[in-house]
Simulated scan of single mutants.
Amino acid sequence: MDRDLIPDVVAAGGLVPALRQAGAELGVNVTVEADGAGARIRWEGQDGAVVRDPLQVELSAKERTFFTTGMGPGRGVELVSGTVTGLGNVVRLAAAWGQGVALSHLHAQFPGTYSSKLALAHEQGLEAVLALQWQMLHDQAAEEESFAAFGELVRAAYAEPRLRRLSAFTSHWVLGFSTSVHPRARPVIALGNKVCPPCAGAAQVMGPDWPSRPAGAHRAVN
C-alpha cells in the first residue's frame, strides 16, 4: 500500500486511531475496533440503542478512499457497500448508518455507496424480500426456455400458498425453501431430483419423471 495515499492514517498510527481521532474532531461519538486489516466503527447513540451492526471499513490499496460495508442483522445480507473519501466522511457515514438512515438517503449523501435490489427489499420487510425472491425465480424460469420443466416447477410451487410464504431459492435446478430469509438459513424442503449441496438435510420431494412430465411438478408440490 502506498503510504503517500494515506498520510493522515499513517500519522495517526493506523486506521483505528485515525478513525477515533476523526470522530473526536467532528464531535461524533463512535466506537472503533480493529477487524483484521480493517476496522469496525459503530455510532453510539445517547440512549445506547443499537439500530444496526457496526460499519466495516477497509483501506483501498490504490487510491485515497475507504471501502465500507454495512451488514444486516446477524451478519446476514449486505445492505450497503461502496467507497468514501476522507476519514471524516467515513465517520459521517458510520453515524448515518448507525442512526438507521434509509438506504436511498445514504446513497444520496454518499454517492459512492450502493445497495442491491435484495438489500432494498430487506429494508422494506419480509413481504418485499419474498416477492423479490419469487420474481427472480420467475425471471430465471422465463430465460431457461430449453428447460421448460423448471418453469413448470416454479409456477406450481408459487401456486401453493404454503410454499409461497417461504423463502425460496434455486440451485442445480432444485427449488429450496427455508423458513428464514437469512442467507445462511438451512432449507427445510427441496423440490427436484438433482443433487443439491445447499439443500443438504432438507426433505427432498420429487419423482424421477418430473423433467419429462409437467404434471410431476404439481404432484410434488401437492
Rank of each mutant, 00 (worst) to 15 (best):
K62A: 15
G88H: 05
Q133H: 05
G151P: 04
R42K: 11
L130W: 07
A217R: 07
G76M: 05
S60L: 15
V174M: 09
L15A: 10
Q140I: 02
A121D: 00
V16R: 09
L175M: 08
G207H: 09
S180I: 01
G45Q: 13
A121E: 00
V30C: 00
P198D: 00
A24I: 10
N29I: 00
Q109L: 10
G125M: 03
A18N: 00
F177H: 07
S171E: 09
A39M: 12
W97H: 01
L137H: 01
P161W: 11
A34F: 02
V195S: 14
V195I: 13
V205K: 00
V80D: 07
A94S: 11
V80E: 09
A190Q: 06
G14Q: 08
V195R: 13
A95I: 06
G72I: 02
G38S: 04
W134M: 06
G112I: 02
V129I: 07
G192R: 02
M1Y: 13
G70D: 05
N29F: 02
K62L: 15
M136H: 05
T65F: 14
M206R: 03
R155S: 13
P161T: 04
A220S: 13
L59K: 14
F67D: 14
L93S: 04
L166V: 07
A217F: 02
R3M: 13
A217K: 11
S171G: 08
A131I: 03
V50H: 09
V80Y: 03
Q135F: 02
V221W: 10
P161H: 08
A128P: 02
V10E: 14
T85Q: 15
D139V: 06
F66C: 05
S167C: 06
D53S: 15
L5S: 10
A200I: 08
A168R: 00
L153H: 10
A142I: 02
S116R: 01
A61S: 15
H182I: 04
Q56V: 14
L166N: 03
